[in-house]
Structure formats: C-alpha cells, structure tokens
Amino acid sequence: MKLLTLTEYCLMIFFTGVFLAVTGFTARDIGLYVGIALIYTFSHLFSKRMLEKRGKEKQQANLFISVLAIVGSVLATVLFIAIAASFAK
C-alpha cells in the first residue's frame, strides 16, 4: 500500500468519526454525503501536500505497518468519541 493511501485512510477514519460524533450520529441524506466528501477532499489534499513536502509521496508501506496504522486510527477515533461523550454529560 502506498504511504499516501494509508495516510488518507487514517485521516478519513479519524475525521469521519469526529464528524459523526459532533453531529450526534444524526447526519442524514445530503448533509452526511457532503460532510464525508469534504472530509475526503481535505484529507487527500493535506496528506498529499504533507508527503510531497517530505519527498515520500511514492513510498510503500508494508502490510504490518498498514494494519497497525489503521487499527491505531480506529482506536484513536473511539477514544476521542468516548472522551467527548464523557465531557458532554
């Protein structure tokens, strides 16, 4: 997997979870689709710019690092949602 794709996936997972938590998991129809499209667009642009600045846009990531990064992204998202929910009450 390319490092660019892995970075996009991790950012997409995290910020989509944050978006859904902020909207209270009630985002529906066009608001949900526009929100996810904007999140994907910004995560793609940010990760591409960040990796190009460091010269790593063509670098490959091995399978173990890819799985670790995606699992870590999911765990960070769940942790953020749990912390946000505990402060909301």
Rank of each mutant, 00 (worst) to 15 (best):
K2M: 07
K2R: 11
L4F: 14
T5N: 07
Y9T: 11
Y9V: 14
Y9I: 14
C10Q: 09
L11H: 08
G17S: 07
V18W: 07
V18G: 00
L20V: 06
V22A: 01
V22E: 02
T23V: 02
T23Y: 05
R28W: 03
R28P: 00
D29L: 10
D29W: 09
D29T: 10
G31V: 11
L32R: 12
Y33H: 11
V34Y: 08
V34D: 09
L38W: 00
I39Y: 02
Y40R: 04
L45W: 10
F46H: 09
F46W: 12
F46G: 03
R49A: 15
M50P: 03
L51Y: 03
L51Q: 00
E52K: 15
R54Y: 13
G55Q: 07
K56P: 04
K56M: 14
K56V: 08
K58F: 09
K58S: 11
Q60I: 13
N62I: 03
F64Y: 05
S66C: 09
S66N: 08
V67W: 07
V67L: 15
L68W: 02
L68T: 10
V71G: 04
V71L: 15
G72K: 05
G72H: 04
S73M: 09
V74E: 06
L75Q: 07
L75G: 07
A76T: 08
T77W: 02
T77L: 10
T77R: 04
I81F: 01
I83Q: 00
A84L: 11
A85I: 05
